[in-house]
Design a protein around this nucleic acid. Structure first.
Length: 550
DNA sequence: ACCAAAAGCGCC
DNA sequence: AAAGGGCGCTTTTGGT
């Protein structure tokens, strides 16, 4: 049963798809009652999970499945632009100001039903409707998970975070003062460079000071500094690392992003996950830099008392989905265990490091140094896999779109791109025009090369996570738990990072949850690639703090 | 005073 | 000769 849901000024219009009589105008509270009762098993069809699910979550309601019409429409419009996008389906504007100026156009239930039918028709027209249907379902499931993870929050210990900062930076300084350790290093660096007034936070000033001290550098990046042989390098790199920690994840971050603990709600970090926020289908986040939490502060992620974190990391997803897409049995076989070690054991390359460099170069389009030597070996051993990404690159260079396994298409290059290519194609093109066009074409080829693997890996991760969510929801609540975590005492997802998930779970079922995580990974592989013999091994750990994993 | 771009670096 | 994909965030820079 599909329940349609359209917000209106007072609450929501709700109705059952295909049943004109079962329609009602409800308050959010009334809706929550039905969502837990007669509609508990329904698939919810709504314009936008991100705005409609949170009010239900706030009332303690979880829904099993949904169809997010905005997300699926975005996928379909990229495959083939549709007719006019209904105003109620347009992407929310980023700027608050213009949002208020826009007329509030509300969808009717008939609008929703028409859109559902139209999308179904459009899906049926593509080459592989089954896969695209799976993608739309997975994308929608992801939207539910994103909203749930935000509502639940990631358990985050302010006290532990403060300890980590104090360990490295010294105690929290008064506002406007530099932490003790940074101050100490700054003095040392200024002495070594004979530059007493040097502002270390200004790359321009720092570069000048380095040069005045006789160091030949082009920038102040750590990659370049690391190569130098000079006593200032070590304290300078240490300073940069601390400055970064302070700016990105220091006390200000903690105050802004982790709600202070209260009795009714333990310390939690909440970010806005944006499913499909990246063109490849990866998620983006907004707020708190959630996808860049440095390893050094992950110790602040602490399970509630009596609870654990199940941390699972999918090993080498991108080469694995490539093997499956390309139907490259040799690469799939090499990936039965550690894929990079498999390349060594098969005699393709001599070391695991070389396997990694070679494989990543194939996926990203790298050609420098060692990659140039390794790629031919990979190509010989795995012609189907390497040929697959080479073709994606060649398609991109010609300005064509490419598609992921489930059918998400890459954006076409822009008009400026085409103009440059067209100009170079004329008879009177200059050498520099042609060079520019070739370089630009190769840039786009690298993008499309990576798109097919990054995008398909993102699809696998969505299927994995959606399958896990379903398995977790089926578990009975664990009684007697002291945790304040929502989800009625059940294990729940609290973090997702491209190929890694964290589940917060009562300790007594942590091992069972670990088994479900593994099961969901296997099931995602079968769902996407059927009987093709590809495996998706995981590194899984049951820990109390995030830094204990991996 | 304000804004956009660039530099730099964190994650996958 | 050199040539690595995708992000978000903070700070500085360079402009109006």
């Amino acid at each position: 049963m599909d329940v349609l849901l359209a917000p209106d000024s007072s609450g929501v219009q709700a109705g059952v798809l295909g049943s004109p009589t079962e329609r009602a105008s409800l308050s959010w509270d009334e809706l929550a009652v039905r969502a837990d009762g007669e509609w508990a098993e329904a698939r919810w069809v709504w314009p936008d999970t991100a705005s409609l699910y949170p009010p239900l979550l706030a009332r303690g309601v979880r829904v099993p499945r949904c169809l997010d019409l905005r997300l699926t429409r975005t996928i379909l419009d990229r495959i083939e632009p549709g007719d006019v996008v209904p105003v109620w389906l347009e992407r929310r504007e980023e700027t608050e100001g213009t949002l208020l100026d826009l007329p509030r156009v509300e969808a009717t239930l008939d609008d929703l039903a028409a859109e559902v039918a139209d999308q179904a028709r459009r899906i049926a027209q593509v080459r592989d409707p089954e896969r695209l249907r799976l993608l739309c379902a997975a994308e929608s499931a992801g939207a539910l998970i994103a909203a749930e993870m935000r509502a639940d929050g990631m358990p985050w210990s302010r006290a532990r975070h403060d300890e980590i900062l104090a360990d490295r930076l010294g105690p929290r300084p008064p506002a406007g003062f530099r932490p003790r350790e940074m101050d100490r290093l700054a003095t040392e660096i200024a002495d070594l460079l004979q530059a007493p007034r040097l502002n270390l936070d200004s790359p321009v000033a720092l570069l000048k000071a380095l040069r005045r001290a006789g160091l030949s550098v082009e920038s102040t990046s750590k990659w370049e500094l690391r190569r130098l042989d000079h006593p200032v390098v070590e304290p300078l790199l240490a300073y940069k690392s601390l400055a970064r920690l302070l700016a990105a994840n220091g006390w200000a971050w903690l105050d802004a992003w982790v709600a202070p603990g209260r009795e009714d709600r333990a310390d939690r970090f909440r970010t806005d996950y944006v499913p499909g926020g990246v063109v490849t289908g990866r998620w983006a986040t907004s707020g708190g830099g959630a996808l860049q939490i440095p390893k050094s502060v992950r110790g602040a992620v602490v399970a509630d008392p009596g609870w654990r974190l199940v941390v699972a990391d999918a090993a080498q997803i991108e080469p694995r989905v490539l093997a499956a897409m390309a139907r490259d049995v040799a690469l799939a076989t090499a990936g039965r265990g550690d894929l990079y070690q498999g390349l060594v054991d098969s005699g393709v390359v001599d070391t695991r490091d070389h396997a990694k460099i070679g494989m990543l170069s194939a996926l990203y389009g790298g050609t420098s140094g060692e990659a140039g030597l390794l790629l031919p070996r990979l190509k010989r051993a795995y012609p189907k896999a390497v040929g697959y990404v080479d073709r994606a690159a060649a398609d991109g260079e010609r300005g064509q779109v490419v598609r992921t396994w489930l059918g998400r298409t890459s954006p076409p290059p822009g008009s400026a791109w085409r103009e440059v290519q067209d100009r170079a194609g004329q008879g009177d093109a200059s050498d520099s025009d042609e060079r520019r066009a070739r370089s630009q074409a190769r840039d786009w080829g690298r993008f499309t090369r990576n798109f097919v693997v990054q995008g398909t890996a993102a699809e696998w991760a969505l299927c994995w996570m959606a399958g896990l969510r379903r398995r977790l929801e089926a578990l009975a609540p664990v009684g007697g738990s002291t945790s304040l975590a929502p989800g009625r005492g059940r294990p729940h997802l609290v973090f997702f990072l491209h190929d890694e998930i964290v589940v917060h779970t009562p300790a007594e079922v942590a091992e069972h949850v670990r088994d479900l995580v593994v099961e969901a990974a296997e099931s995602a592989g079968r769902l996407m690639f059927g009987t093709f013999p590809i495996t998706f091994p995981l590194d899984v750990a049951i820990v109390e703090t995030y830094d204990q994993a991996g």
